[in-house]
Amino acid sequence: MISCPTCQTQHLPNTFFCDQCGTALHGAARDNRTADAAILSTPFLRILVQATGLTMTLPLTDEIVIGRKDTDTGVRPDVDLGILGDSGLSVSRTHARIRRVGTTVQIEDLGSTNGTWLQGKRLPAHNPLALEEGKGYEVIVGTVHLTLSVQTKERPPVRPPQ
């Protein structure tokens, strides 16, 4: 038997998730931090992939890494542009990150091969720049055009649309 590290429930070998508390037992889940009410007061990052119109809203608990998933090296970025819009391999595995530092939110290029552009200007690698809350930013990651915005006041809808 294997024991759930969170709630100590016993499971058979090859069980992937604890059915009592939801903990990933296989090391497969990207994020195993328990979501609790504190998250409701954290800022959110909205990402729009311009070519496909796909939008994502992610809680900015500490940082969000944008990149390209690579099963060979086990790299699993929070936002995988490999499936979400990159046609070639223009996006590096760990390309850029959006990070909370105190009360500010920063964007940083992580030394990517093809660069990160913010409002038409290339970001110097490893040189974080602050993002203003509520403002829409044009960001190019490799060849993928995104619109990013950080929101703290306006919440995503949490009720069924009426």
């Binding site: 939801g22 990933a24 979501a35 959110f44 994502m56 809203t57 949490v158």
Partner: peptide, 13 residues
């Protein structure tokens, strides 16, 4: 715990 799994699946809303 459901919410944790949902965040992991990018089902933020």
């Amino acid at each position: 715990a459901v919410a944790t799994r949902l965040f992991d699946l990018h089902e933020t809303e």
